[in-house]
Amino acid sequence: MNQTRIAALAETAGIDPLSAVTHPDPYPYYRELAASRPFFRDARLGLWVAAGPREVAAVLAHADCRVRPPAQPVPPALAGTAAGDLFGRLVRMNDGAAHAPLKALLVPMLAAVDPVRAAQQAVAMAQVLDAGNGARTAMPAASVNRWLFALPVVALASVLGLPVARDRDTAVEVAQQVAAFAAAQSPLADTDTVRAGAEAARWLGTWLASSLACGVAANGPLPALQHAALAAGIEAQAVAANIIGLLVQACEATAGLAGNTLLWLGRDPSSGGMPLQGVVARVAQDDPPVQNTRRFLAADTELCGHAVKAGDTVLVLLAAASCSGLADDARAWTFGHGRHACPGDRLAQALAAATVAALRACGAEPAALARAFRYRPSLNARIAHFL
């Protein structure tokens, strides 16, 4: 496939590496990029683009490719706000030795969460969210949208031992505040969204501190995490920020995975006969929720055979690598690779499957949902919004 044909395809489809995220079918375009332009400079976007699986892996593993611009640890819109303070402490948004001790505690804690237990907690929390709704024949699209963002968050909070199962209002409030903080991190966030995110960060910090102080999380892994962090000299604010960060990770990406699974089931009714966990795993690879990520060059270096400079940005097309068919091992690149790979991939898939199962049990109809939807505006996440 030559560059001229890729350009013609992009022009005909009205697509580029950023708009592909919310395009109805970006995958032919992604496959052609991965095959013919696995690493290139997009002059119009002002970005390097990594599309091939080898190139994606190389960028994500390179020591000079950082998760944030070295001179901009916090997005400018969040700087000086409670949301910025919280963001700046997230280990997944930082590189370097200072954050390694806490990461060394968080990764095994998250990886040790039993996906089966998480799915059971999702079932229990679905009953909390559905309390008082009574019998119904079909679940409205608006309710489906709310559940996609709420159920994975409160299920994970419950697994961690946080107090969300006591009443529906608490569960809903926690989910809404997590979603507000997550939305503020988007480059597309407007002033009101950023302000709401700062208020959400303050609310979540207060709620979490109160929950931990009262010992309500004693039946989860958090006390052991706090004890180990204290012994390692890690500040309590960093621990609290990253507990909130785990809930944020369960928010948009899992909503996208569950929503795309509903679309998959709606478009291909025969897939309904497959084990739901298998459908989710296929969607994670073939229609992933996180389509791309970025890396920022901290030094002049050579990358994938090209000279790149400090300050350059690489757009890493995870979805292109995932659907390319070029890798020796098929995998869901949406969960990342290398030092910032998500350790909760099995957990995320379990929560997504449990969310889809709960929605269907409450009357959500995939075929009907697939007939009327759009994708939420985003530069990196493919999240269905049902109409």
Rank of each mutant, 00 (worst) to 15 (best):
I6Y: 03
R374K: 11
S211Y: 04
A281K: 05
R5G: 01
L33T: 04
N145W: 06
R168I: 13
L156V: 08
L257K: 09
N133H: 14
A196N: 14
I244F: 04
D190V: 08
T301C: 12
T254F: 09
T313C: 14
R374D: 11
R31I: 05
P108D: 00
M109A: 06
R68G: 00
A217N: 03
V216L: 10
A124C: 01
A171Q: 06
L222V: 08
L106K: 03
L317I: 02
R331F: 12
L247K: 03
L60T: 00
P223M: 07
A384S: 11
G273Q: 15
A8I: 03
L86I: 12
A224N: 12
E365R: 15
S210T: 15
P69V: 00
G14F: 04
V178W: 14
A321Q: 04
A353I: 07
E32M: 15
V248S: 01
H306A: 15
P53S: 12
A175H: 05
R202Y: 08
L303Q: 00
A352P: 13
A372S: 13
L257E: 05
R267N: 01
N219I: 08
A82I: 04
A310R: 15
Y375N: 08
D328G: 15
R89P: 00
V172C: 07
L212A: 14
A135E: 10
V128L: 05
D25P: 07
C214T: 14
M274I: 13
G96Y: 09
A141P: 07
G134T: 05
L387V: 10
T137E: 14
A310W: 14
G14E: 09
A83R: 08
A238F: 01
G132D: 00
E365S: 13
Q3L: 11
P101L: 03
A241W: 11
L78D: 06
V144R: 02
A299W: 03
D64M: 05
V128R: 06
L212R: 15
N260R: 13
R374H: 13
T206A: 13
N242R: 07
I243G: 01
K309R: 15
G46K: 08
D300H: 12
S322L: 04
P152A: 04
D16W: 02
R195N: 06
D312Y: 12
Q237Y: 06
Y29F: 15
D16N: 10
Q285Y: 11
R136H: 09
V123M: 07
A175K: 10
N2H: 08
V153Y: 01
A299H: 11
Y30H: 13
P38C: 02
M109E: 09
A13F: 01
G305C: 02
W203C: 00
A83I: 00
L359T: 09
L106M: 09
L106G: 09
M109D: 10
N380H: 06
L110T: 12
A51N: 03
R346C: 10
A320P: 04
L379M: 07
R346A: 15
R37W: 10
V49K: 06
M1V: 07
G311C: 14
L379H: 09
P76R: 14
S378C: 11
A330I: 07
L78C: 11
G305F: 01
V194E: 10
L60D: 05
P70A: 13
A370L: 06
D42P: 10
A97Q: 14
L90A: 10
A364F: 03
A255K: 07
Q277V: 12
G96M: 04
A213R: 14
S322K: 02
N242I: 06
D16Q: 01
E55S: 12
R202G: 07
G272I: 08
